[in-house]
């Protein structure tokens, strides 16, 4: 591969960010800005055609991601970003459809859509910013909040188990699944870039920090505390292979978890073949 010069932040800003949209609404120390920066770097690295790239978001702190970028963008209702993305992609398979969502958006209210998009293996890139909470509504527990956490709706500690969203996507049929963390920015760019390149449904979960609504209630009041927590509670795919299930308990495995190359099994590719079949009178 030819070596490409790394673009300066100012160049990236001029190319992909909407002028005069700063400062962002996110709280100081929030991890979402970091995810956006990585997402944009990934889009640039892959070299997606700007006009063909659309961003689809839902509701929550992560739902506002589109607002600082200059792509065609959809900002809709809670939990429904994925079906909108499916409609866009199927209607025009040329589009690169990128769907940043929060943990509540993607795993609770929109959980059904996530697993079915994974099952269909439709070529959209879902990026789940997992900050362990519903930040926008003031810090309630989500299906990805660690058990025991104090939140505004679990004042005595969260008694619910949390999803392993990556395992869920894998089980549902996603052909690219990865987990990153804002602590590992460089890796996050690569994971998102590979997800975008992948032909099929991609899920990239990014563990992010919400110091304001989650951290301060859980003895991790600053971004630094939460990033340290990320460092202590994540293990790489390679290291995880050497660890026992006991040792892995409560740890997040980061890196590429699934990467199945089968472009002809992607949904819109299958659909093109369906159209050919239907055009020839139903005979294959």
């Amino acid at each position: 591969m030819a070596k490409v010069a790394i673009k300066k932040t100012s160049e990236i800003r001029a190319e992909y960010y909407r002028p005069n949209s700063f400062p962002t609404i996110w709280c100081p120390g929030c991890g979402i800005g970091n995810v956006v920066a990585s997402m944009v770097r990934a889009i640039d690295t892959v070299g997606l055609k700007h006009d063909d790239t659309v961003v689809v978001t839902g509701i929550g702190c992560s739902g506002i991601i589109y607002n600082y970028l200059n792509f065609d963008a959809y900002h809709g209702i809670h939990g429904r970003a994925i079906p909108v993305a499916v409609g866009l992609k199927l209607a025009n398979p040329r589009l690169n459809v990128i769907v940043p969502m929060g943990d509540g958006d993607s795993s609770a209210i929109g959980g059904n859509h996530l697993i079915h998009a994974a099952r269909r293996n439709i070529d959209i890139t879902a990026i789940v910013v997992n900050n362990s909470t519903y930040g926008n509504t003031g810090g309630q527990f989500s299906p990805l909040t660690p058990t025991g956490s104090i939140t505004t709706t679990s004042p005595f500690g969260n008694i619910e188990n949390s999803f392993d969203l990556c395992e869920l996507a894998k089980g549902a049929g996603a052909t690219y699944v990865a987990r990153g963390a804002t602590y590992y920015s460089r890796q996050m760019i690569d994971l998102i870039a590979n997800g975008i390149r992948h032909k099929g449904f991609s899920l990239i979960e990014v563990i992010s920090q919400c110091p304001v609504q989650y951290g301060r209630r859980n003895k991790l009041p600053t971004a630094v505390d939460l990033l340290k927590w990320q460092k202590e509670n994540t293990v790489s795919v390679t290291r995880a292979k050497t660890m026992s299930p006991e040792e892995l308990k409560g740890k997040f495995i980061i890196g590429e978890l699934v990467n199945i190359e089968a472009p002809d099994q992607e949904y819109t590719a299958r659909y093109e073949r369906l159209i050919e079949k239907a055009r020839s009178g139903g005979k294959s």
Binding site: Y74, P83, V84, G87, K89, L90
Partner: peptide
């Protein structure tokens, strides 16, 4: 929501 996406 899917038809909304396709219409867009």
């Amino acid at each position: 929501n899917c038809i909304i996406g396709a219409s867009l």
